[in-house]
Nucleic acid binder design. Structure first.
Ligand SMILES: NC(=O)c1ccc[n+]([C@@H]2O[C@H](COP(=O)([O-])OP(=O)(O)OC[C@H]3O[C@@H](n4cnc5c(N)ncnc54)[C@H](O)[C@@H]3O)[C@@H](O)[C@H]2O)c1
Ligand SMILES: NC(=O)c1ccc[n+]([C@@H]2O[C@H](COP(=O)([O-])OP(=O)(O)OC[C@H]3O[C@@H](n4cnc5c(N)ncnc54)[C@H](O)[C@@H]3O)[C@@H](O)[C@H]2O)c1
Lengths: 213, 213
DNA sequence: TAAACATTGTTAAAATATTCACAGCAGTAT
DNA sequence: ATACTGCTGTGAATATTTTAACAATGTTTA
């Protein structure tokens, strides 16, 4: 399997897996590319190409084995050892995220939160304990954390990113509206909701649809 | 100016504008493409190409006029009449979003929230009043709402989307992890945080960087 | 004044991503 | 058996996006 799987393909594989798990729960055993593609909102050809990337092979007559394909994607996406993650900034957004990711996926769990506000320290929110921001570096190093979520105010985001990088974090989901400067081996996923909303507003006026329905 | 500006370009234009406003606040009058590009985390060539899309022209010696370019982008992105928006689902995420977008941009404001939980109705959260979900359709029609944010549970999202579309909404920012079925003239921006986090975790393991640092 | 310089706007090239289209295959029907 | 069906996997074609490259241009300097 190629080392250079694109960001888009990785994202869609994650989506396919979710849909496969739903199918599995609904006791569906096999699914055709066009069926899964429809659920995902992509074309069948694109889906088959994505699946090619992980080297899984379906049957021309029965389609894809729901459970096997889901496992195959999981094997591709997940670290079998698990990847604990932390979140920094227990404000409005941070708490919402914590409620969402609390105990969501065994291999990818939020294990700790950090905040500089002493009033929040030691509180347990949605099963995740909040620690002092002062202990961030130590915690990351000691627990070999590689994945982090930044939900601090924009003025603090680069600061926090610097600490994370220094401590060994290799992937950051960043909600602060700022371009973080990090070494090139650290992956940043920016979630910029202001931009997203402006896009929606713009295309709502254009009455222009996305590529695939 | 071409009718077919890509989604990516529109998103980046929104980003440039934010940076220009920051520069303007800092009393900077002119900026070169490579300076603005660095702030945005993109290449200068890409930025110049994006700006080409809106037909603005800078000066080879002084670069771009900060205020004029910001206005030019605003003129391109925004409806001069303003575009009121609504949010449906005043839960953990909905409230965080409301706090973020409350009175953010004059031309693009969250003017109302809707929830099916009667306990939330009539509460005012971050200056936005919460109405009963029963009044959603009427409100949208009467106020000619074209932009909406969906933060209801996944089981309710398609339901809500159907109501929105029926009432005339043309752009939806959707946080529910489901592919919404809507007519092709309705623009959907899916924000799928579970997928985003899985991407981060995957690339954190690969130690692979994004295209531009 | 003219040469040197750094920047823009834009065309052309390259890189990515998507879609097409079909060979090959496993069932099923005849 | 043999023909038929509808699927997958994939090479080739197409579309989109990014990057490179440079002529044109205004500014500064000598
Ligand atoms: N609320 C939203 O829906 C939303 C949407 C998009 C983006 N954002 C961005 O997300 C970030 C957080 O937004 P919010 O609404 O939750 O803000 P918030 O003010 O409610 O929360 C920020 C939290 O970060 C903590 N904090 C500040 N500095 C810190 C530090 N150095 N280390 C650790 N913790 C620190 C604060 O004590 C506070 O609890 C901001 O950058 C905002 O722009 C928020
Ligand atoms: N919390 C997060 O950070 C987060 C992150 C990503 C995605 N999401 C998604 O966003 C959505 C909301 O998440 P949440 O954590 O805020 O959930 P939540 O349960 O806290 O809030 C959902 C709200 O929607 C309301 N609601 C339910 N049905 C409704 C209807 N038909 N009309 C109007 N309102 C209705 C509920 O009363 C509730 O207030 C979910 O689809 C979730 O998957 C949440």
């Amino acid at each position: 399997m190629p080392l250079n799987t694109s960001e888009k393909t990785v994202g869609r594989l994650s989506l396919y897996r979710r849909l496969l798990q739903e199918l599995s729960t609904a006791s569906v055993s096999y699914v055709y590319s066009h069926q899964l593609a429809t659920k995902a909102g992509v074309t069948a050809a694109k889906l088959r190409r994505d699946i090619m990337a992980i080297g899984y092979t379906g049957s021309p007559s029965k389609g894809y084995d729901v459970v096997k394909l889901a496992e195959s994607i999981a094997h591709f996406l997940e670290d079998p050892e698990g990847q604990p993650a932390v979140i920094i900034g227990v404000g409005n957004l941070g708490r919402a995220i914590m409620s969402y990711f609390g105990g969501r996926r065994p291999k990818l769990q939020l294990v700790a939160a950090f905040d500089s506000d002493e009033k929040k320290v030691n509180r347990v929110i949605h099963n995740i304990r909040c620690f002092s921001a002062d202990s961030l570096e130590e915690y990351i190093v000691q627990n070999s954390i590689k994945v982090a979520v930044i939900t601090v105010p924009v003025t603090q985001a680069q600061n926090v990113a610097d600490i994370l990088v220094r401590s060994g974090v290799k992937g950051i989901m960043n909600f602060a509206p700022i371009h973080l400067r990090v070494p090139s081996d650290v992956f940043i996923e920016d979630i910029d909701l202001a931009i997203s909303l402006e896009k929606v507003a713009y295309f709502a006026r254009q009455n222009k649809q996305k590529k695939e329905a």
